[in-house]
Each structure stands twice: as structure tokens, then as C-alpha cells.
Design a protein around this nucleic acid. Structure first.
Length: 308
DNA sequence: AAAAACGCCAACCGCTCCTGG
DNA sequence: CCCAGGAGCGGTTGGCGTTTT
């Protein structure tokens, strides 16, 4: 299969973006809004294909993007969501609006996957063989090695906020005023497809099932057996996917809407989640499980000595 | 001090999905 | 319904910086 026509054109530049190109792109988007990427290279004179422009915007220039410094909470959420959804980075990113799918994917591939593999190799082989996915989720939080190379505490991360990265943040800030005035649009994903999406990954369901630590249930702060089973039922998967759809629409329906969320940050998301959960009670359990539990486990993780 | 090995991440590639005609 | 073009997604890679030998 051939490449998209735009990338075949002679004179299309590849490789790292220069600050000048970024400014041109940001200026254009500031004026016309994100979308219609096909016309971006033509109208700006950028020697980049439309795809490249879109990626540059969504992965780097879009306001509200948080770079580096994955918090233990974010890490926990990624692990949870990866077990639940598989390598659906865009879906996972919809739960971490300040992170791009590319960023999450990179972090998974460079840090989390390694940690998990390391953990598996350290496990009893018998345990590792049968219910790997169960351990994957439930045990991954036992990984006490927070200070991994490249993590927040590592000097390497400080280097990420290079001079140029800072400049793009400044560019992004300039856009905030414009973003606020952008209207929010919604774009619902067909639920049937989302059902397939969730059910397709039976391992994820297994993981979710296995990941039901008795301890936390006993605490009564999280979910009961019945609630947990109900989460796994078809109806409530609808709710989960409804949530995902809603998040996705925020992200891909309109970039402006996504940045609107980004700008208002976590407080806005918490507020929005609260409103949504009022409409969809079963979802509350899922999100509670996802958000509270991972945070709690990570806190617990911090107190224990390193495992590796 | 120099070279090799390693790690990270931005960007690319190829494929699928979506949408409008 | 079919087709073509655009957009989005996930896997992969190249380049660069850091660490190790």
C-alpha cells in the first residue's frame, strides 16, 4: 500500500521541526483553528505533509500538554488502562487529557513494559505462567522501584524541559485566550463498535476480574462484589464505553475542545466526571476503581522498600 | 579521552476508519 | 452501495544525549 500522496511530493521536509516552522503552524491554527490539515501546508507554505502538521500540533504544540514527569498516579492509571483496554493509546490518553497518546505509548514502551517484564522474570515461574494478566495488573503496583532511570526524579527528565520545549509552552500559552472562546463540539462514537472494542480484549476483562484485591474491598471504600460484577456486565460496559466515547469526542471531535479541557486542567475534569457520573451511576464504580485505587496503591507503594 | 553501548523520544510509516459525493 | 480522500491510530525507527567501558 502506498504512502499518502502528500508525503510522496518532492520537497516535503522530514525530520525535526524548527521553531520557525512551529510558529508558522501555531499562527495558522490560531487563526483558523485545528482541522482541515490538508490545507495547512498549502496555506502556510510549510514543507511538511498534512499528517506531519497534525502530529506536530497534537503531540507537541497543543496547549495544555504536560511533558515528562509522569506521576505515580498517572503511571498507575496507565497500567490499569493498558490492562483493561490493551494498546489503545488514544483511548488511554483520553483519561489523561494532559498527555498525548504518543507520550503514553513511549512511556509504556520505555519504562512500564520494562518494569513489568522485569517483575515477571522475578516471579515464580508457575505463578507467571497461568494467570499472567492477573498478576500483570495486581502485581504491577508492587513494583516499588519508583526512582527508575528517566523518571521524574532522574536528571534526565529535567533535560526534557529544554529551552525549545519551554518556548513551545510559551507559544501554547499565547493560544489560551483563543482556545477559551472556541465552541465545544461533541462527536459520539458508535456504541456497538465500542462494545467490540472492549470485548475484543478478553484478557483485559480477565485482568480486571483478577484484579480484585480483597483487601481493598474490605476497606469498603471501593467497590463491592456485586458492583464489580456489574461493571463487567454488558450494560455497564456500555456505560464504560459511553464514558470513553465522551472522552474521545472531547479529544478528537474538536482539538479546540480538548485544549479547553486541558487549560482548565484537572479541576475541570473532576467537575465534568462528577456531572457525568450523576447521569451514569455504574460508571462511578469504574472510575472510582480507576482513579482512587491506583492513587492509593501508589501511595502504598511509596512506603515500601524497592523490589528490584 | 575516546569509543561503544544504551536509552529516550519526536517523527515517520502503513494501515484502518470515517465521511461525503 | 461504492469509491476516494482525509483523519486518526498504533507500531516502528532514526537521531541525539547519556552512561559505561
Amino acid at each position: 500500500m502506498g504512502r499518502p500522496p502528500c508525503c510522496d511530493k518532492v520537497g516535503i521536509k522530514k525530520g525535526p521541526w524548527t521553531p520557525e516552522e512551529d510558529i508558522i503552524l501555531v499562527s495558522y491554527i490560531q487563526e483558523h483553528g485545528p482541522g482541515n490539515w490538508r490545507s495547512v501546508p498549502t496555506n502556510t507554505g510549510l514543507l511538511r505533509c498534512s499528517k506531519s502538521c497534525r502530529l506536530r500540533w497534537t503531540n507537541y504544540l497543543r496547549p495544555g500538554i504536560k511533558r515528562g514527569n509522569f506521576t505515580p498516579h498517572e503511571e498507575g492509571m496507565i497500567i490499569h488502562l493498558q490492562a483493561l483496554l490493551g494498546n489503545k493509546w488514544a483511548a488511554i490518553a483520553s483519561y489523561l487529557p494532559q498527555r498525548t497518546d504518543n507520550d503514553i505509548k513511549n512511556y509504556w514502551n520505555t519504562h512500564l513494559k520494562k518494569k513489568i517484564n522485569k517483575f515477571h522474570s522475578a516471579l515464580d515461574p508457575q505463578m507467571a505462567s497461568d494467570s499472567k494478566s492477573c498478576q500483570f495488573v495486581s502485581k504491577s503496583f508492587s513494583d516499588r522501584d519508583i526512582d527508575i532511570p528517566g523518571h521524574a526524579s532522574s536528571p534526565r527528565f529535567n533535560q526534557n524541559s529544554s529551552m525549545y520545549a519551554s518556548s513551545t509552552e510559551n507559544i501554547s500559552r499565547l493560544l489560551e485566550g483563543w482556545m477559551r472562546s472556541s465552541p465545544k463540539t461533541t462527536q459520539s462514537e458508535p456504541q456497538e463498535k465500542l462494545h467490540q472494542h472492549v470485548f475484543a480484549n478478553s484478557a483485559a476483562a480477565t485482568s480486571l476480574h483478577c484484579y480484585r484485591p480483597e483487601v481493598e474491598q474490605e476497606e469498603g471504600d471501593l467497590i463491592s462484589n456485586e458492583e464489580f460484577e456489574s461493571i463487567l456486565s454488558f450494560d455497564n460496559l456500555t456505560s464504560i464505553t459511553w464514558e470513553k466515547s465522551s472522552c474521545d469526542s472531547t479529544q478528537k471531535g474538536s482539538q479546540a475542545a480538548a485544549t479547553y479541557d486541558d487549560i482548565h486542567g484537572k479541576a475541570h475534569l473532576v467537575q465534568e466526571r462528577k456531572q457525568r457520573t450523576e447521569k451514569n451511576p455504574p460508571l462511578m464504580f469504574f472510575e472510582k476503581w480507576l482513579l482512587d485505587e491506583s492513587a492509593g496503591q501508589v501511595e502504598e507503594m511509596m512506603e515500601l522498600p524497592p523490589m528490584f
